[in-house]
Design a protein around this nucleic acid. Structure first.
Lengths: 338, 338
DNA sequence: TTTACTATGGTAACACTAAAAGATTTAGCG
DNA sequence: CGCTAAATCTTTTAGTGTTACCATAGTAAA
């Protein structure tokens, strides 16, 4: 790479003259500025980012730790984070925790060596199950900012971006009740996660506070080593009266719809289904799945903006939690509202 | 962050003594080493990555430019790249070109300021359509290494990782012929891309070199602003005799299966379908889609390894192209082989 | 000649490491 | 014992690319 030194030598001026010239300093004569810029242009000079980072003690880089990039929600969040970050002149270093605490810890450790100005992350499943977030707090104690999104922890005091998980599930369940559904089941493969628990609570709350609803809430959880297909098949067999499904994770709704179709349920006449999927799954379903839209793009953007606010005001010791609104989008797997 | 200077001051020794002690230099007395290490540990000292990068003129960071992270193939490739890179001590800075030449160019420009040691990338659709890759060549001319994967260009001389797109489609088509299919249609929403063209050629070649096959090849292309659903519905209407489908992109196969099912085709008795999807879509299909597996993980890993080889031997001026084997996985949407 | 200004140069600092130099201790030997 | 040579340990210096700050040379006006 071409350096200031190279330019200075070729132009027979000092390094600091070159530096000033490139910054249009008024101390430097117009002719010199022109000469310097011409050569810089010609040799494709670029200020060395690493040197500037060292000098300024800031990298303009955000460490982004994602639990599982193959989950469409996180892929979309990453998309939004990248877009918003790059529009603000930030690069992102992506780390994938693979839902493992060890990898999460490792990434935090490694990148807190000055590689990044801070982190945007969603907590790994394993960390949530163990309820062990010491490694995250340790980073915050070093005064390195972190923004948590989606999967958060009350134990960690930092800026956060979440959706109203309880409210979203509550509203979706209310909708099924308003359709007159009497046997509403919740399906979840994220039972371990904070968001999963909150959504389940919302569902339960909606059912219990409805006086006409007689059934006890039924929560079907699908764990890592179970196959959703089979579990859902069993569900239909065990609860043939089922007439409403809330699927609170990314994929179960689609699978449930598939199975219902195979088993000749009439959707939405006999059975309504609401998923938490993003619209990417719609291409795979017919009829189109009604979903709770999480506005993932907004989540990503808000995370970046909170992060940048924090950098600009590190001292600020009150933290913000931004709640992104969800939207219940009724498509073809629920009855239309009148 | 704690620096060597901080440690030196607290211990009343020089900075270089501290540095050497931490590197277990034999020049330093065991007691001093112990004292230094104890304090370093206690204060959680970490060598500043940026300073080391400046000194060594290497960042241990790879710039990864992905056209579309919402495409499962690329998400999985990124997953593999991250995993392999981090296991070799490299970080990745992720940029999303969003299929746009301008964003791709921008990312290359910005990161070639010393932020990364080189790039692993797949060419944006727009760059491929315009057949304009000057911006990529410009980086190579600056002696910054690039590994291209999946979407490559013959114009660019660098290390590459690809699959045998022609051969994979050829083989899949051959399989349908061996089933005795007489009306085989190819569906593609990646008609613009190098890989799309190669796969199409493979399909055409398989058909034309088969003497018993009478039909002319039929290629249904789905462009960005068309809806796959509708286009595929039209396909079935226009070619009711259709008995074989090769879907060469990530999603069309699943959609075709959906539609076929709706239209009461018997799969695989009356109609066989082979997709190029990754196994993530299987959860959404019943019967399970037969696919060409691209071994995406291997593609990602191979890219990283080629990249590291290149860094270790920058001078080497012959370039390598690694071809990752594909595998035709016959599931339930094709007839079993006897 | 002093003052004021213009244009440029030099130095230090960011955190680190390699190489050279310096200081101190130890060993060896007459 | 006393001196030197060798061994051991520590410090200084320089360099990575950049910029902020301070210094200086030269010129022109007062």
């Amino acid at each position: 790479m071409v350096t200031l030194k190279d330019l200075a030598e070729q132009l027979n001026v000092s390094i600091s003259t070159v530096s000033k010239a490139l910054h249009n300093s008024e101390e430097i004569s117009p002719e010199t500025i022109a000469r310097v810029k011409a050569l810089a242009e010609h040799l494709n000079y670029k200020p060395n980012k690493v040197a500037i980072s060292l000098k300024n003690n800031t990298t303009n880089t955000i460490g982004v730790i994602i639990p599982n990039i193959l989950n469409h929600f996180f892929a979309k969040a990453l998309y939004a984070i990248e877009e918003e970050a790059s529009s603000h002149g930030y690069n992102i270093i992506t780390c994938l925790s693979d839902e493992k605490k060890s990898k999460e810890m490792n990434s935090l450790q490694l990148l807190s060596d000055g590689s990044v100005d801070g982190f945007i992350m969603s907590i790994a499943e394993e960390s949530q199950i163990d309820n062990d977030t010491e490694h995250i707090k340790a980073i915050l104690n070093q005064n390195i900012p972190i923004v948590l999104f989606d999967r958060v922890s009350d134990d960690i005091i930092c800026d956060k971006v979440i959706i109203d998980d309880f409210g979203a599930a509550f509203e979706a369940t209310k909708h099924l009740l308003s359709e007159g559904r009497k046997h509403i089941v919740l399906i979840s493969d994220i039972d371990n996660l904070s968001v999963g628990k909150l959504r389940t609570n919302g569902y339960v709350q909606a059912l219990t506070e409805n006086e006409d609803y007689k059934e006890t809430p039924i929560v079907v959880t699908i764990s890592k080593n179970e196959v959703a297909d089979q579990k859902i098949n069993v569900l239909f067999k065990e609860y043939p009266l089922i007439d409403g499904i809330i699927a609170i994770d990314n994929t179960s709704g689609v699978i449930a719809l598939q199975k219902a179709f195979k088993l000749n349920y009439n959707v939405p006449e006999d059975l309504s289904i609401i998923g938490f999927s993003d619209d990417n799954v719609l291409q795979f379903t017919d009829p189109k799945l009604s979903t709770v839209s999480q506005h993932t793009i907004d989540i990503g953007k808000a995370s970046v903006n909170l992060f940048i606010d924090r950098l600009n005001n590190k001292a600020q010791n009150s933290t913000k939690t931004k709640i992104i609104k969800t939207k219940l989008i009724l498509r073809d797997t629920t009855k239309p509202v009148f």
